[in-house]
Design a protein around this nucleic acid. Structure first.
Length: 306
DNA sequence: TGCCAGGCGGGGT
DNA sequence: ACCCCGCATGGC
């Protein structure tokens, strides 16, 4: 699909610490980020909005692309602010970070980017029982081979977006298996079916009833799709790391210490420790090396490789 | 080659 | 409540 250039918006984040470059880089593919420009497709009210954004004089300049003749500038700006998290206040979270053995050196100003529930599910299911590299390769395969493609007027890069759940249902599980999802495919098939037949609200309420969606996947989807950080996202990796620094009951620690920021704590930790496999991450924790390295394939450098 | 990885559900105790 | 196993697939 081709989208025409419609308008330019300037955004001044309410979060004075907002780090545009790292927010844009985090878990981005090459079509999303090139070191300066962040690009994405935002879907709302059945519209496809193309976004190209960059930083200039402490402001975020956004070019907006669409095929709609009438677009409300206010609505579009609201969607973009929400997508980037420019107005999110994380001071309370940072305060908690300072008292945490693993996140005490956190880089402030990085926000997660909000995606729709389908994209969030594709990301979350890919992380089950797989390394960071394997999981993101699955997502890349799916988007590259079967994704929706968007060309923005005047730009060469082709943006990829997850295939519509309808396409998944029509073409069957093979699309997911081809992308490396393996036995995780049927979980995503079920999510696609419910989304098409019963809608987003129903899916959101019934996520945990779906076979293959446990606490981890649920918490991750709620974070990625709704900025809801209140659920625990605890896996072998997080558990192993906290045990390394002497936390014996990790679930309890999350519930009591991180409280309403449980999911964000895990997400931020993967960024600070480069999502390194557990044994490597443990070595880093022992060395006190708690900041991203920017070398090799990491959440912040994925865009250079894929 | 064989093993393991940022889970999950089912079946055992 | 726990513990333990199989599960598709890719990476090393």
């Amino acid at each position: 699909m081709r989208l025409k250039r419609r308008m330019r918006i300037e955004i001044e984040p309410l979060d004075k610490k907002f780090n545009f470059k790292l927010t844009a880089a985090a878990y981005s593919f090459s079509w999303n980020y090139d070191g300066k420009h962040y690009r994405t497709i935002i879907k709302y009210s059945d519209r496809n909005i193309g976004v190209v954004a960059w930083e200039e004089n402490h402001k975020i300049i956004v070019e907006v692309y669409s095929n709609e003749n009438y677009l409300s500038k206010e609505d579009v700006e609201h969607e973009i602010r929400n997508h980037l998290g420019t107005d999110e206040n994380l001071e309370e979270f940072y305060k908690l970070c300072r008292g945490d053995p693993l996140l005490k050196d956190v880089i402030e100003g990085i926000h997660s980017r909000k995606v729709d529930i389908w994209y969030a599910s594709i990301i979350a299911v890919a992380q089950q029982n797989a390394s960071f590299r394997q999981g993101w390769k699955m997502i890349w395969n799916l988007l590259s081979r079967y994704g929706e493609r968007f060309l923005l007027e005047g730009l060469e890069v082709e943006l990829k977006y997850p295939p519509n759940p309808r396409l998944i249902l029509e073409r069957g599980e093979q699309v997911l298996k081809d992308s490396g999802y393996g036995y995780r495919s049927r979980t995503l098939m079920e999510i696609a079916k419910i989304l098409i037949e019963n809608g987003e609200d129903f899916l959101k309420k019934n996520l945990t009833k779906i076979r293959g969606v446990g606490k981890y996947t649920y918490g991750l989807i709620m974070m990625l799709a709704y900025r809801d950080y209140t659920n625990p996202v605890i896996d072998r990796w997080v558990k192993g790391l906290y045990e390394t620094v002497g936390v014996t009951n990790v679930e309890e620690y999350y519930r009591k210490y991180w409280g309403r920021y449980q999911a964000l704590a895990t997400w931020m930790l993967t960024i600070m420790l480069d999502a390194a496999p557990l044994s490597k991450a443990i070595e880093r924790v022992r060395r006190g090396d708690l900041k991203p390295s920017f070398s090799g394939i990491t959440p912040l450098t994925l865009w250079r490789y894929y």
